[in-house]
Design a protein around this nucleic acid. Structure first.
Lengths: 196, 196, 196, 196
DNA sequence: TATGAATGAGTATTCATTCAT
DNA sequence: GATGAATGAATACTCATTCAT
């Protein structure tokens, strides 16, 4: 059967990604060698190059996958607790992302400032595309749509996401200027005023 | 004379910093070797280790110096055009920083998300300290002081600076989601509402 | 039908040879991988090993085929313009070879100093054998036969062919010490004196 | 003393060249790794790159040095047995080169067809330059000078050297079409006629 | 026969760091 | 202090060859 081989290949690629993620989080990207990644994935070194062009290529794929995963989880969190208040939904969304990174500090350290890119830079996969469509629908149904064009709304959301990501990084990774829990009120205050 | 020797040493250190800055901006930090830095600074490789522990050490010093320089320039820009409106002064400050990085894209690329740290992380030099004192005084004299504690104000400002830095990076370096000039209205809109 | 299968195999082998020749001439032997050869020949990498033992094996076959082709063409050129003067016929032969390599510099570069081998080293195929027989007949009918043994004549011709091949390489590939056209008078002068 | 360090460096370079020559002759260029060269020269691998850009760079230097050495030796051989007959002197020269390569087959295998280049391609060192000057003087004093221009004489000699080198390679390395001793009469016969 | 995924030994090259001068 | 030759561990990447399908 043709599908079986393809499945084995996907499995091997997944093994490499998983091994790399673990090692990147344990020792950092720079201090992880292809040797180690292949070793932990239980494949030969040459096999790595069958699936990725180089370490950077793998890292990009990893960041993309994590970002999609975070967005997916965040959007489902909003869906399950959705209110009638648009702004509160946005804050729920931001909070879900923040909570994810609180639970997964090492992933945040890995991603650094590269989160949020998948929304803009990459071809969207079926999965991200679905989330994105839903977000757009929500935005257009919101009170914001009465006073802002689509482009304006997009930029506004973009800046808010950047702000959250940036503060996440500082406060979760470095606890600067304070813990993320102590930064949340400030952050959500700004979001409320910005969208209100 | 002892002073002359000291002066020569400072000059050598400065040469190394300048050489490194040039090379980092030309080729990136990772692709710059200590060989190259020493070469361009016209000193022997061993001499490098007389002044810095390693490349990272030098990079931190560089980031610190650039950050101080940006803040200094921004604060002086505000001073020369200062209005009675606190919020507009904050925006003048942000704008001065943004304009600096517009003129010095490569420095922004080098600093990445590390800007703003000197305010918080480092021992303050006489110079930064003075700016910082002035900023605190301005903040305490502002209308904000009536509704916020010092700590709250600090966090608020911190988040705003992070937001500006982050958007600077995206829009100046990657033009995402738009040019920085097109992002300014969104950014300043958020600042006005956040502080208003 | 067995013949059809055999034909398909020969076609595949020919495809591999053609692909390899192109790649060898484009990038050089060392910088051509079996991957690339198989790729251009539109067969799987493993298939390569069904037809050749390794890259060197294929290269030898290629050199042999080219050499035969050159000799064949040169001999036919002499035949069509044959004179009564033996020495002039030899020069016609040399000239035909030189002109071939002028038109096919890249083949010359590939063959390097390996031309002329097929005359001596390899089992002769029906084709080369025929040419060789004709050459021998010509030699024995020549005035040279009166003063030289067969062995002496053979060595004489061998040295002349080596000389031509060597000068071809220098002058066509490197234009040293001059272009091949400017070297011809010297070369043919030596041949005339050597045989005269 | 400054000269001592320089001397040590030259010694190290010489060690690398010697080690490489040995290994190239034992196992061939392709099958010799930088590792091995450095190992046999008793230096660290990195040291290799202090003296040569890569293996090819070293090989060129080796070929150049060997060529100079052969020419030097051949010219001195002629000097010590010089006759009044120009042609016989040329043959003495050729014979000295041939005898050198008979004694040093492996060097011939290494140099392949690259011998004679130093005369034409490279900046001449003081040493080669001296030989070259002497050769030119001899040529101009020869009877050949009465019937040939300098350029013609140069090309004639060039072709003869190429011929000798090429036949050396075939007969010494591969004994084709016969041993070099059996080829000599043919070779010298051609030289006599070509110059006579 | 044909395939192409997998292998892993092999190699070139870089570069931070040391230390004798 | 200053030098720069020497080091050698570290690492990325290639590619001929095999073999299960």
């Amino acid at each position: 059967m043709a599908g079986k081989l393809e499945q084995q290949k996907q499995e091997k690629k997944q093994n490499l990604l998983t091994a790399a993620l673990e090692l990147f989080m344990e020792n950092g990207v720079a201090k992880t060698s292809i040797d180690q990644i292949a070793g932990r994935a239980q494949v030969a070194k040459g096999t790595f190059y069958l699936y990725f062009h180089d370490k950077e290529d793998l890292l990009q794929e990893l960041i993309y996958r994590i970002s999609c995963h975070v967005l997916d989880e965040a959007y489902r969190a909003v869906d399950s607790r959705r209110t009638d208040d648009f702004i509160e939904n946005v804050i729920l969304f931001a909070d879900a992302i923040i909570e994810y990174f609180k639970r997964n500090r090492l992933q945040l350290r890995l991603i650094e400032r590269n989160f949020s890119w998948p929304l803009v830079t990459r071809q969207m996969s079926a999965r991200t595309d679905a989330i994105w469509q839903a977000l757009i629908r929500d935005l257009q149904a919101s009170p914001l749509a009465r006073t802002h064009t689509g482009d304006e709304m997009f930029k506004l959301i973009f800046v808010i996401v950047e702000m959250c990501g940036s503060v996440c990084y500082s406060s979760i990774i470095e606890e600067k200027p304070d813990t993320i829990d102590n930064m949340k009120p400030v952050l959500y205050g700004i979001i409320r005023r910005a969208l209100g």
